[in-house]
C-alpha cells in the first residue's frame, strides 16, 4: 500500500511550521519600514498598527461569539425537534 501523506501529523513538523509562521509574522511587520507609507488616518503612523488591530479585532470577535454562544444562542442539535 502506498504510504499516505501525513506531514502535518508529526510533532517535529508542526514545530518547524510554527517557527516558519513566526518568521513570516515578523517579516510582515518589518516590511513596513521598507515601503513608502501613505498616511490616511492618524493611526497609520504607528508601526505595526494593522498587526495589532488584526489580532485584537479577532480576539474580541472570538470572545464575543463564545459568550453569545454559551449563554444564549447555542442549543442542542435536536432543539427544533423538541
Amino acid at each position: 500500500m502506498k504510504k499516505e501523506f501525513d506531514w502535518f501529523d508529526k510533532p517535529e513538523n508542526i514545530k518547524k511550521l510554527k517557527t516558519a509562521c513566526i518568521v513570516i509574522l515578523m517579516i510582515s511587520v518589518l516590511c513596513e519600514f521598507l515601503i513608502h507609507k501613505h498616511i490616511q488616518h492618524v493611526w497609520d503612523k504607528i508601526p505595526g498598527i494593522h498587526a495589532v488591530f488584526g489580532f485584537i479585532a479577532c480576539a474580541v470577535l472570538i470572545i464575543i461569539s463564545k459568550l453569545i454562544g454559551k449563554y444564549w444562542l447555542k442549543k442542542d442539535e435536536d432543539y427544533y425537534d423538541k
Binding site: H50, A51, G54
Partner: peptide, 21 residues
C-alpha cells in the same frame, strides 16, 4: 506597498489570533 503590507499584517495576525484562541 501600503495596501499590501497593511493587509498582510491584518490577515496574518488574525491567523495568529485563531491559533492563540
Amino acid at each position: 506597498g501600503d495596501h499590501v503590507v497593511s493587509m498582510l499584517q491584518l490577515l496574518l495576525f488574525s491567523g495568529l489570533a485563531f491559533f492563540v484562541f
